[in-house]
């Protein structure tokens, strides 16, 4: 079982469009949308949901006003300013640490677990999809990322599929960290701008810390060929393999509007052809990494 995680550091570089395109090229695979905070893959995949589960996240303090005597201890011990002068908890500030629950002399503070999202197992025209939706303003997205990747892997094993394509989250924080552990390889989709260079460097450093083999490709390279070259040479210095370039092509937007992958929309376009050549290289490199690591678990 091997897993390719596609991430970007910076948002909006074309990560999901690329992953959807890979999905129409790869055979025998499971798809996993681990960008649980703003998942978009389903807009192209049009999934038929088979299983729907609640995601139980963190806890939030709840003060029982009948028991509360207004002594104020909870407000004193709370580090997150989550309890107001009327002893109401602001769920957006509450960290769920339970310190108020522990110290309340009246046992007036409950700490119920929240349902903070849903996850799904679905069918798509490109194979099974594990995906999730984190509720707005919720935390624990890292844990939901871990959960959905695990569900995807189990699904792959049950169905005898040996590849998982994972659409990862942007950034470098908790959800990205959760998407890297145990991955076979990572592909960073970069864009040729100063921001793209800066973000790519940070996310590559993170992937390096996880010891995951890392690859990159530059999307819309012709918007600034100098920056594209700068990204590629930085990648080489950081031991990140450069897989190719994709020209700026309006079919990225046009195909998205139709809910189609690049190849379904126009397989002969410049954009699609360059994505195809990148996929072939990425797939080859995945197979190589996998053979090298055969002895390891997972």
């Amino acid at each position: 079982m091997h897993e390719l995680v596609v991430i970007s550091g910076k948002g909006g570089t074309g990560k999901t469009t690329l992953l959807a395109a890979f999905a129409s090229l790869a055979r025998k695979k499971v798809l996993c949308d681990a960008d649980v905070d703003a998942s978009d893959l389903h807009l192209i995949m049009n999934p038929r949901i088979h299983q729907r589960h609640d995601f139980k996240g963190g806890h939030t303090a709840l003060i029982n006003q009948d028991k509360c005597t207004g002594c104020g201890i909870c407000r004193d011990v709370c580090r997150f300013d989550a309890i107001n002068e009327n002893f109401k908890v602001n769920p957006l500030s509450c960290e769920g640490c339970g310190v108020c629950h522990y110290f309340c002399p009246e046992e007036a503070v409950d700490l119920p677990q929240k349902t903070c999202g849903e996850w799904y197992i679905s069918d798509t025209r490109f194979g099974p999809l594990a995906h999730a939706r984190l509720g707005v303003a919720e935390e624990n997205s890292g844990r939901l990322v871990t959960l959905i990747r695990k569900q995807g892997k189990e699904l792959a094993e049950r169905m005898g599929l040996d590849l998982m394509l994972t659409d990862g989250p942007p950034g470098i924080g908790c959800p990205v960290i959760a998407s890297l552990g145990g991955a076979t390889a990572v592909l960073i989709v970069a864009e040729p701008s100063l921001s793209g260079l800066h973000d790519m460097e940070r996310v590559a450093q993170l992937a390096h810390g996880f010891n995951v083999p890392t690859m990159t490709c530059v999307n819309k390279f012709d918007l600034n060929p100098d920056q594209a070259r700068a990204i590629e040479s930085m990648a080489e210095r950081k031991n990140v393999a450069v897989m190719g370039r994709i020209p700026f092509d309006p079919i990225f937007t046009k195909s998205m509007i139709m809910g189609r992958t690049l190849f379904e929309y126009d397989s002969q376009s410049n954009g699609a052809l360059s994505v195809k050549s990148i996929w072939e290289k990425v797939f080859k490199s995945l197979k190589n990494h996998c053979e090298k690591n055969k002895k390891l678990p997972d």
Binding site: D37, A38, L92, E138, P169, P170, G171, G173, T253
Partner: peptide, 25 residues
Amino acid sequence: PGTSCPVIAAMSGADFILLVTEPTP
């Protein structure tokens, strides 16, 4: 970007939120 806890930390207490989007799905 996103809508989870880091975004809330950057939006709460603001007087106005300016949302930037592009007209795609």
